[in-house]
Design a protein around this nucleic acid. Structure first.
Lengths: 350, 350
DNA sequence: TTGTAAGCGTTATCAA
DNA sequence: TTGATAACGCTTACAA
């Protein structure tokens, strides 16, 4: 069997070899019932012998379908790839897509998001899209809504009528803060990522609610926002610990930030959890191996990815389907970075 | 301007509106010279008004081109997404592809790699492919070579005549081990990931060479291999430190492994670097924030991605191009996890 | 159970 | 400088 290099067998070649029409081959390929076993066999043989694969462009031209899921990260490229959270979400998406025999097209377009999205959608490059990270006011979201294109957002979206998957972030942050309060902490700070992200907003809200409910004061000096990255956690924590009345506990809205904070505390001679408690969010693998291991809110990162892909797949299968809102519950994982509040030495000293 | 929802304007619509032929529109779209400015303008107007985008499937059917780069991870899905190394490589690929207006199709097929690859290639889903991670004997590699499909491998490939991008891993591991030897260490262990990976092989070789050159014995008990993950580093290090003659220094073939080791040492009461020195590979962000900060071999992860994408892009532009082999040099970043060898208390004790 | 033939939206080859 | 027209490889009525 000599195969011409660089030449692909087409459905015509298969049909010829199996002595049937291309229609029949197409039917075979698409699993139609009602083909004589004998014919089936001949077609199968021909496909094997010619190593035939259906040309995706030709099929797409007719069916207007690609079997590709677009994944667009609406964040800075570094933010995206440096963040274990997104990688786990991507894993969930990738797994789910693969299981459904879909491919994943990935873009971290940054500023060009809208343009690329328009190309993807109008150019019929993808069958549906996952939007990662929800900014408070997201133009890409509006484009999608205008086009009525199958889409699912990860995180609370800024517009209605868009399906999304999210954590119960307000509650989770409330619980995390409450955990600290229950340990006797009264000076609890919040360090987080970019303020224009819905997730930051929500977690900050939960933090405020917990303090309010415990009749603890909410001080702006204890709310520091930066980026979702390790360095930011380091810097923010350093600032706090060197302030005149440093907090005894930290709610970090991301494990990377929390681990950066751990390191800052260590560098400044603070012992965790004796002098400072730290709780993070996400439960990335690094959290288990930080020193000390990090107490954190598990958000089920991969499951978020799975869910977002599943909802999208359903939307593609049935575009008329109603908007879906999936909330993935969180839970606290207690490790060693949180402990009872230290005795108020500071006030005694003064 | 009313736009029919769900309907895409085609090149025909544009042609009609601009009162020209589709040929002329196509020429305009593809930047041909020799169109009257006046005509150009009308076409531009029509495109804008109709919000036209070229249908990728239709174009692909004719040009046999997709402007998509395939990225296939030849590892376990978890291995891939949990490893900061791959994420940074992916970032480099993503950036480079985007700059060239290519999209990235991502697959972590695991066992199905060959099947998916065949679909991608024969189905004309992609213009070229990046293979991530090179196993010692990789069937996917052979498929690609047989098909003469534009491909670039990250890591030393098992077959000749395939372009690749790699670090100077043997030299890097040699240097890392030498660094430890220069600090006075004599009992130096190697902990690494899967043994069937070229990168593991190479780094192990460099380690052996450094020991040999210093006339230090190479003991199998000091070479422990697991997976490229944090937990593996924790376990391997625990085993070593609890052995009868524990090492005073560790070469970890990956930062995740190294940080796991750091944690194990901490849990067993070893002080780093006083009692144990640890050097890693990659310089992932976490390395800077481990306790203590990790001495490591910077492999320029993102640059590896950039290079691999660039080589592939060149190959696509000119398939006749000769095989390219790019070696990205590494360098040691000294932080606090390595120090002088401890006095040989162990022998004194005995 | 199978086949004929008409598209799908581009690009490419001629010709004008 | 522009335009007809024939592919590209598939799916899908409609027929048989």
């Amino acid at each position: 069997m000599v195969e011409k290099l660089g030449t692909q067998a087409t459905i015509k070649d298969v049909a010829r070899r199996a002595s049937v029409s291309t229609t029949t081959v197409s039917r075979y390929l698409n699993g139609f019932a009602g083909i004589k076993p004998d014919t089936k066999e001949r077609i199968a043989e021909a496909i094997g012998a010619l190593n035939y694969r259906t040309n995706i462009a030709a099929r797409g031209l007719v069916t207007k379908t690609t079997r590709i899921l677009g994944v667009m990260a609406l964040t800075d490229v570094d933010d995206f790839f440096n963040n274990a959270f997104f990688m786990h979400v991507l894993k969930g998406i990738s797994r789910t897509a693969a299981a459904a025999r879909y491919d994943v097209l990935l873009s971290t377009a940054g500023g060009d998001a809208e343009e690329i999205l328009a190309d993807w959608i109008h150019g019929r490059r993808i069958d549906g899209i996952v939007l990662l990270r929800s900014r408070v006011n997201e133009p890409a979201m509006q484009l999608i809504q205008r086009e009525r294109f199958p889409a699912v957002v990860l995180g609370r979206p800024c517009v209605n009528e868009v399906s999304y998957v999210d954590n119960n972030n307000v509650t989770a942050a409330y619980t995390a803060t409450k955990h600290l309060i229950d340990l006797g902490h009264e000076r609890i700070a919040f360090i987080g990522g970019a303020p224009d992200l819905a997730v930051t907003e929500d977690r900050l809200l939960g933090y405020r609610q917990a303090l309010a409910q415990a009749s603890l004061p909410v001080s702006d000096a204890y709310i520091l926002l930066g980026q979702y990255e390790w360095q930011s956690g380091y810097n923010l924590c350093s600032t706090l610990l060197q302030s005149s009345v440093p907090p005894t506990a930290l709610v970090a809205s991301d494990d990377g930030i929390a681990i950066g904070a751990l390191q800052a505390a260590h560098d400044l001679g603070w012992i965790v959890p004796e002098n400072l408690s730290v709780i993070g969010f996400n439960d990335i693998p690094a959290s288990e191996f930080s020193i000390p291991p990090l107490t954190t809110v598990e958000v089920h990162m991969e499951q978020l990815g799975t869910a977002v892909a599943e909802v999208l797949l359903q939307k593609i299968a049935n575009p008329e389907r109603a908007v879906q809102r999936v909330i993935v519950k969180t839970r606290i994982i207690l490790r060693s970075s949180t402990g009872r509040a230290p005795a108020p030495v500071l006030t005694e000293r003064s």
